[in-house]
Protein backbone atom coordinates (compact mmCIF):
# COMPACT_ATOMS: atom_id res chain seq x y z
CA UNK A 1 0.00 0.00 0.00
CA UNK A 2 1.40 3.39 -0.89
CA UNK A 3 2.27 6.00 1.72
CA UNK A 4 -0.36 8.58 0.69
CA UNK A 5 -3.11 5.98 0.67
CA UNK A 6 -2.12 4.71 4.07
CA UNK A 7 -2.01 8.30 5.33
CA UNK A 8 -5.50 8.90 3.98
CA UNK A 9 -6.83 5.87 5.80
CA UNK A 10 -5.18 6.91 9.02
CA UNK A 11 -6.57 10.42 8.64
CA UNK A 12 -10.11 9.16 8.23
CA UNK A 13 -9.70 6.78 11.16
CA UNK A 14 -8.35 9.58 13.34
CA UNK A 15 -11.22 11.81 12.30
CA UNK A 16 -13.80 9.20 13.21
CA UNK A 17 -12.09 8.61 16.52
CA UNK A 18 -12.18 12.32 17.29
CA UNK A 19 -15.85 12.54 16.32
CA UNK A 20 -16.68 9.82 18.83
CA UNK A 21 -14.32 11.09 21.52
CA UNK A 22 -15.91 14.56 21.47
CA UNK A 23 -19.50 13.40 21.05
CA UNK A 24 -22.06 14.45 23.65
CA UNK A 25 -22.57 10.92 25.04
CA UNK A 26 -18.88 10.52 25.78
CA UNK A 27 -18.69 13.97 27.30
CA UNK A 28 -21.59 13.10 29.59
CA UNK A 29 -19.74 10.01 30.77
CA UNK A 30 -16.63 11.97 31.61
CA UNK A 31 -18.61 14.85 33.11
CA UNK A 32 -18.83 12.83 36.32
CA UNK A 33 -17.85 14.45 39.59
CA UNK A 34 -14.44 12.80 39.86
CA UNK A 35 -10.79 13.78 39.91
CA UNK A 36 -7.72 12.31 38.17
CA UNK A 37 -4.28 13.43 39.40
CA UNK A 38 -6.06 16.30 41.17
CA UNK A 39 -7.69 17.41 37.90
CA UNK A 40 -11.41 17.26 37.21
CA UNK A 41 -12.15 14.16 35.12
CA UNK A 42 -13.73 16.07 32.20
CA UNK A 43 -10.85 18.56 32.05
CA UNK A 44 -8.31 15.76 32.11
CA UNK A 45 -10.18 13.66 29.54
CA UNK A 46 -10.67 16.48 27.04
CA UNK A 47 -7.04 17.50 27.01
CA UNK A 48 -5.79 13.90 26.92
CA UNK A 49 -8.07 12.99 24.01
CA UNK A 50 -7.17 16.19 22.22
CA UNK A 51 -3.46 15.53 22.70
CA UNK A 52 -3.90 12.03 21.37
CA UNK A 53 -5.64 13.31 18.24
CA UNK A 54 -2.81 15.79 17.67
CA UNK A 55 -0.25 13.01 18.10
CA UNK A 56 -2.15 10.93 15.55
CA UNK A 57 -2.17 13.83 13.10
CA UNK A 58 1.59 14.21 13.52
CA UNK A 59 2.03 10.48 13.01
CA UNK A 60 -0.10 10.56 9.87
CA UNK A 61 1.46 13.71 8.44
CA UNK A 62 4.85 12.06 8.84
CA UNK A 63 3.66 9.21 6.64
CA UNK A 64 2.50 11.59 3.96
CA UNK A 65 6.15 12.21 3.07
CA UNK A 66 6.61 8.57 2.18
CA UNK A 67 7.23 5.55 4.37
CA UNK A 68 10.55 5.74 6.20
CA UNK A 69 12.80 2.75 5.45
CA UNK A 70 12.91 1.36 8.97
CA UNK A 71 9.17 0.88 8.88
CA UNK A 72 9.65 -1.97 6.45
CA UNK A 73 12.36 -3.75 8.41
CA UNK A 74 10.76 -3.53 11.80
CA UNK A 75 7.56 -5.25 10.82
CA UNK A 76 8.24 -8.47 9.00
CA UNK A 77 4.73 -9.58 9.85
CA UNK A 78 3.51 -6.86 7.49
CA UNK A 79 4.13 -9.17 4.56
CA UNK A 80 1.34 -11.43 5.64
CA UNK A 81 -1.29 -8.74 5.26
CA UNK A 82 -0.33 -8.14 1.65
CA UNK A 83 -1.48 -11.21 -0.22
CA UNK A 84 -1.53 -9.29 -3.49
CA UNK A 85 2.21 -8.72 -3.41
CA UNK A 86 2.96 -12.33 -2.70
CA UNK A 87 0.64 -13.63 -5.36
CA UNK A 88 2.41 -11.55 -7.94
CA UNK A 89 5.82 -12.70 -6.75
CA UNK A 90 4.71 -16.32 -6.94
Amino acid sequence: MSGPKRAAERAVATFLFACVAFSPPFLSIFGADAFVFGLPLLYFYLFAAWGLVIALVAWTADLGSGPPPQRISDRPAGISDRPGGRARAG
Binding site: P4, A8, A11, T14, F15, C19, L42, V53
Partner: peptide, 21 residues
Protein backbone atom coordinates in the same frame (compact mmCIF):
# COMPACT_ATOMS: atom_id res chain seq x y z
CA UNK B 1 -20.20 27.54 30.90
CA UNK B 2 -17.28 25.45 32.10
CA UNK B 3 -15.56 23.59 29.30
CA UNK B 4 -17.92 25.21 26.76
CA UNK B 5 -15.09 27.38 25.52
CA UNK B 6 -13.19 24.37 24.20
CA UNK B 7 -15.09 23.06 21.11
CA UNK B 8 -14.12 26.18 19.19
CA UNK B 9 -10.53 24.90 19.34
CA UNK B 10 -11.33 21.23 18.78
CA UNK B 11 -12.94 22.03 15.42
CA UNK B 12 -9.74 23.28 13.74
CA UNK B 13 -7.95 20.19 15.00
CA UNK B 14 -10.58 18.03 13.35
CA UNK B 15 -10.30 19.94 10.09
CA UNK B 16 -6.55 19.56 10.18
CA UNK B 17 -6.91 15.83 10.66
CA UNK B 18 -8.33 15.90 7.15
CA UNK B 19 -5.77 18.40 5.86
CA UNK B 20 -4.66 15.99 3.13
CA UNK B 21 -8.18 16.09 1.66
Amino acid sequence: GGMDFLPIYLGPTLTFVLWGF
